[in-house]
Nucleic acid binder design. Structure first.
Length: 1075
RNA sequence: GGGCCCGUAGCUUAGCUAGGUGGAGCGCACGGCUGAUAACCGUGAGGCCAUGAGUUCGAAUCUCAUCGGGCCCA
């Protein structure tokens, strides 16, 4: 049984069906452990999903986290958003498909396994055996998946954890294969040489997304290329990669720029002719330490096109001697460095494009491990980084190195092993995404983005730059690219499914689809030759790109795909704009020609308290487990959901977390408050219907019910727009402001009434309904606390109620309960009460002491309506015996008037007599002056008997508040609190002081609320004794005293005796429990 | 260097779409309440609304630039 039983109370009768008392403190850990056990024991997740079968379909695709073995705050936030939305959709009657997903292939795991095995290069893997290596990777990925599943579950996240999609499964691999086959059939698959980011350590192409930019020191070199047909004339280029000079094929200049041919003079008076962009001449010559120069001629870049030059190292790289080197035009050239760009089509994306456009040879004499091949002549076998120095020396020797220095610049590194990447033209496989750009832009307009700009601005910008997607990797742990190539006729075939592979190759039906096993499968070619698989595996981004149909086990089974695809909802962080949002769209355009999702919520990142990103190297990472340990999962959930808009970054802040936790504790206290009384009274919501108490509802009851409806509507609106923060804030404000700070305060006395009266039952019923509805509202966000409340409030009284709150329907706004004008009136009443506390504070009268009346001077009719409609609420909360109002805009007629002469107005008129006039005004009664000046002016008598006429301006009036009256403004007027003491008020005041102290002592003795006591009170001050004696019976009743003796010489013995000082009056009080 | 987003009290934030006196919570100071009590409530202090310019009678809000932070790209 879920509810936590209060310790040390005698009211709980085990086994009976009733609402139970709960613990004093909100103990998240205890609740969450218990609720997890309960969900498991009752198979709650399954029954909830089963329950909604046949309802409106809601297909959610989980963006698969990479199986690193541990979740971090960002992934926790991600799953919390997902869980909250899915729970909300489920309660709103949706049939939900929600397989959790895992991204399990790729370089990160390979690198980790390599590390564990002490490997340094691909050779080590080959020696160890690819089969063994793959097994290790698989083991590793599966184990980490299990670890992470547990971590997600502690957050209370409900996804289909038992049947997740895993990228390493056959059903998943088939989805990737099938997609590639579609690409081939639609002529969107391409192979050929392309320049790719290449990691020379991992010996594989890596995606743009996998390149990390960091500062790096490199040589900054200015190099001269000699023109073939002009003596002593050079074009000057600049590069940070001298090692690419052996691969130089061309020089690019901008066709529109102006270039100068200059005669440059050295210190030794020798001269040479150089070609440089005109605006950069000065700068380049300074760097080259020339003494002087003279411009010989200028020309456009267009004019330079076709100029032939000699490769600087043609004598060392034999192949270069056979190639003609020319200057060509390219629009991307910028006016930096020399304005002439070294082109090595084998080592740069732009270079490659220039090469293709100008039909240049794609020369790439560098191997996969970053060493030159035999094509590089002298440099053969040398590592390219080591070659920088050698190349520069060779250039220097030939007089072609104009200048060299070092610069620090941003340079790409492999995200896994941090090796500096190089660009290599290699044989790769591509999806021709560039061709689909326009269609993609059309498709994303149909997607509903939250926030709107995530799609219309951010994603759109990204797609506009879409290039062909290199999907091949030269590694082991990945989905093998299903392309088989004939070794005799070079024809290709793409395999779409396992079945097709077995059929065409006759392979073992139980074949493992990973490397190295599929590599051994051959397919007979039509030409009679044998087809072998190309060795590459897929880029892991291609794995997750097919998730929306792989989740549905398509193409293995088509039925679910037809029913569910495309996804109704996905949500990921803003880094996924270029990642999963994009890769999925690309793959889906290839496969189906449309977007794979309908609604996308882009969420933010979790940053540390100072707004820096959390990273292991900075050491500012906060683990979700640490937060859960301190505050529990529900507090973490409600913090990340309420702290900021989903798409904004979240600055993690422990103080805020503590505040959210406090809010949850208040909710707990609110919920706990009436339970002992309900339990004591055997309150059974099954028997006390709303209808039966409707006639007894007070204004505040109707008000809280109306507010409840309003909050439901607010949460609905917020959730429909996926504004989870607004939903949470509405709920929290309701709990804090309306329930805790107001309603509970108002109804407290009603819950203490002992008899079974309808007024009390009305409160019980209202509280009960509000609690149950609140529990349902928080269910998507704080599923554990909601469950705990539900089990106690609902399941304990109704065995037939749904087993878990998550099976319940979402609350529906009951329009009949909505009363906007009552809500408005209550708002005014609250501000009157606040203003009255303020006024009391000014006049020094505690709330415990009643006041004879408060007077409200309103500025509008609404205030009058509120006072009239909620008179007893106001009297009660302000502890006033009466409440009066003035007319709108009229001030209280008991206010005094104070007057003072205004010398600024008197002086100019009366000159030398001004002093006498001022004295006369000062001596007059303020009220008479005010009355006399109503017409604008009046005649007054001076001390010497003369009469003068004064004007209104000559007197300053101010209102004065009578003694013992405090006043304070509120936005609907002014409140005056009349705190004059009377015998009766003093009696009640002192009596309540006594009561408060006895209650305190009861608490100290840890008495139950229904225990009776005997009390003895000794008061030596006779006047106060008399005052208190007037209220003897009232005191006895309030403190549950069967015997109460109050007097001058009372013997104060008992279980607990204490001396008190009550407003300066010493009293001794003793109480004992009455057995 | 480019795109998008963010920058409001010591801290976390509302307000910005549709310009007109900037609201909260935490913390702090003071006070109240005392059958929610290791809880709760009130009052107060605390804001060149990142900076600068512009549009406007009027700018936290619109425009531009700069600075700082985040994501992405080069």
């Amino acid at each position: 049984m879920i509810p936590i039983h209060s310790q040390g109370t005698g009211h709980i009768q085990e086994g009976t069906i009733m609402i139970k008392e709960v613990t004093d403190q909100y103990n998240a850990k205890e609740i969450e452990t218990k609720v997890h056990g309960f969900w498991e024991a009752n198979n709650a997740y399954r029954s909830v999903r089963e329950h909604r079968k046949g309802a409106k379909k809601f297909y959610f695709v989980d963006g698969p986290p990479y199986t690193t073995g541990h979740i971090h705050l960002g992934t926790a936030w991600n799953k919390i958003i997902k869980d909250s939305i899915l729970r909300y959709m489920s309660m709103n009657d949706h049939d939900i498909l929600d397989r959790a997903g895992w991204d399990m292939h790729g370089l990160p795991i390979e690198v980790k396994v390599e590390g564990a095995l002490g490997f340094e290069s691909k050779k080590d893997i080959e020696t160890y055996g690819v089969g063994n290596f793959i097994e290790k990777c698989k083991e590793f990925a599966l184990r980490q998946k299990d670890d992470m599943t547990e971590q997600f579950q502690t957050l209370g996240v409900w996804l289909d954890w038992e049947d997740p999609y895993m990228t390493l499964k056959d059903e998943y691999i088939e989805a990737a294969w099938w997609t590639l086959k579609q690409a081939q059939e639609k002529n969107l698959l391409d192979t050929g040489k392309r320049v790719v980011n290449w990691c020379p350590r991992c010996e594989t192409a890596i995606a743009d997304a996998e390149v990390e930019y960091e500062d790096r020191e490199d040589p900054s070199t200015y190099i001269k290329f000699k023109l073939k047909d002009e003596e002593n004339t050079f074009v000057v280029i600049w590069t940070t990669t001298p090692w690419t000079i052996p691969s130089n094929i061309a020089v690019a200049v901008h066709p529109e720029f102006e270039y100068s041919k200059v005669k440059a003079v050295k210190d030794d008076d020798s001269t040479e002719t150089l070609i440089i962009a005109s605006e950069l001449v000065e700068n380049v010559l300074r760097i080259g330490r020339y003494a002087n120069y003279e411009v010989l001629s200028t020309m456009s870049g267009k004019d330079l096109e076709g100029t032939v030059y000699e490769h600087p190292l043609a004598d060392l790289v034999p192949l270069q001697a056979e190639i003609e080197h020319r200057i060509c035009n390219a629009d991307y050239v910028t006016a930096d460095s020399t304005g002439c760009v070294h082109i090595a089509p084998g080592h740069g994306v732009d270079d490659f494009e220039v090469g293709v456009k100008n039909e240049l040879p794609i020369f790439c004499p560098v191997g996969p491990n970053g060493s030159y091949t035999s094509e590089a002549g002298k440099y053969c076998g040398m590592n390219i980084r080591d070659a920088n120095r050698v190349v520069m020396d060779d250039l220097l020797e030939r007089g072609l190195l104009m200048a060299e220095r070092m610069i620090s610049h941003r340079y790409g590194h492999c995200w896994r092993c941090k090796t500096a990447i190089i660009y290599l033209a290699t044989e790769q496989w591509f999806l021709k995404i560039g061709e689909l750009k326009e269609d993609m832009l059309e498709e994303i307009k149909k997607v509903n983005w939250t926030p709107e700009w995530a799609g219309s601005a951010r994603f759109k910008d990204w797609i506009e730059g879409a290039r062909d997607w290199c999907i091949s990797r030269q590694r082991y742990w990945g989905i093998p690219i299903p392309v088989w190539k004939c070794s005799s006729c070079n024809s290709l075939t793409v395999i779409g499914t396992r079945e097709e592979l077995i059929e065409r190759s006759g392979a073992d039906p139980d074949i493992e689809l990973h490397r190295p096993y599929v590599d051994k499968v051959t397919i007979p070619c039509e030409c009679g030759g044998t087809m072998k698989r190309v060795e590459d595996v897929f880029d892991v981004w291609f794995d997750s790109a097919v998730a929306s149909w792989a989740t549905l086990r398509f193409p293995h089974s088509k039925e679910k795909f037809d029913e569910w695809w495309p996804a109704d909802f996905i949500t990921e962080g803003h880094d996924q704009t270029r990642g999963w949002f994009y890769s999925q769209l690309g793959a889906s355009m290839v496969a189906f020609g449309k977007a794979p999702y309908k609604n996308v919520l882009m969420h933010g990142f979790t940053l540390d308290g100072s707004g820096k990103k959390m990273s292991k190297s900075i050491g500012n990472v906060i683990q979700p487990a640490e937060v859960i340990d301190k505050f529990g999962a529900d507090t973490l959930r409600s913090y990340v959901l309420s702290a900021s808009a989903p798409w904004e970054d979240l600055k993690f802040n422990w103080d805020e977390l503590a505040t959210v936790h406090r809010t949850n504790n208040i909710l707990w206290n609110v919920y706990r408050f009436p339970l002992p009384y309900m339990a004591l009274d055997d309150f059974d919501p099954q028997k006390v219907s709303y209808e039966s108490v409707e006639a007894y509802l007070r204004s505040e009851d109707k008000w809280i019910l109306s507010r409840m409806q309003t909050v439901i509507a607010e949460v609905n609106t917020a959730m429909d727009a996926r504004l989870l923060h607004k939903a949470m804030r509405s709920i929290n404000e309701f709990v804090l402001e309306d329930l805790s700070r107001w309603y509970i305060q108002l109804i407290r006395p009603r819950t203490w009434v002992e008899a079974d009266n309808p007024d009390k039952l009305a409160v019980y019923r209202v509280l009960y309904d509000v609690f149950v509805t609140t529990a349902k509202l928080i269910a998507p966000f704080m599923p554990h606390l909601a469950e705990e409340m539900y089990q106690n409030l609902v399941r304990n009284v109704d065995e037939n109620a749904p087993v878990t709150i998550h099976l319940c329907d979402w609350p529906v706004v009951n329009e009949a309960l909505v009363d906007a004008s009552l809500e408005a009136q209550m708002k005014v009443a609250r501000s009157i009460v606040e203003a009255s506390s303020n006024a009391r504070q000014k006049v020094g009268r505690k709330l415990r002491w009643p006041v004879s009346r408060i007077v409200v001077s309103p500025t509008d009719e609404n205030t009058i309506a509120a006072v009239e409609g909620l008179r007893y609420v106001l009297m009660d909360q302000t502890n006033a015996k009466d409440i009066e109002t003035t007319k709108v805009g009229e001030s209280w007629n008991e206010l005094g008037v104070k007057s003072a002469p205004n010398p600024g107005a008197i002086g100019p008129v009366f000159k030398g007599d001004a002093g006498k006039i001022s004295a006369a005004i000062g001596a007059m009664d303020a009220y008479d002056l005010k009355k006399g000046l109503v017409g604008g002016e009046m005649e007054i008598s001076l001390a010497d008997g003369t009469n003068v006429t004064i004007t209104e301006k000559m007197v300053n009036f101010s209102e004065t508040v009578p003694e013992n009256v405090g006043s304070a403004e509120f936005n609907g007027g002014v409140v005056f609190v009349d705190a004059k003491l009377t015998h009766e008020i003093e009696s009640e005041g002192y009596s309540r002081e006594v009561i408060r102290r006895i209650q305190d002592m009861r608490k100290e003795l840890d008495l139950d609320v229904d225990d009776s006591i005997r009390g003895h009170i000794q008061i030596s001050d006779e006047r106060v004794l008399d005052l208190v004696l007037d209220f003897e019976n009232y005191i006895a009743k309030e403190v549950r005293a069967n015997v109460l003796v109050i007097g001058l010489d009372v013997e104060t013995t008992g279980e607990l005796a204490k001396e008190w000082n009550v407003e300066g009056i010493p009293m001794t009080i003793a109480i004992s429990k009455e057995e």
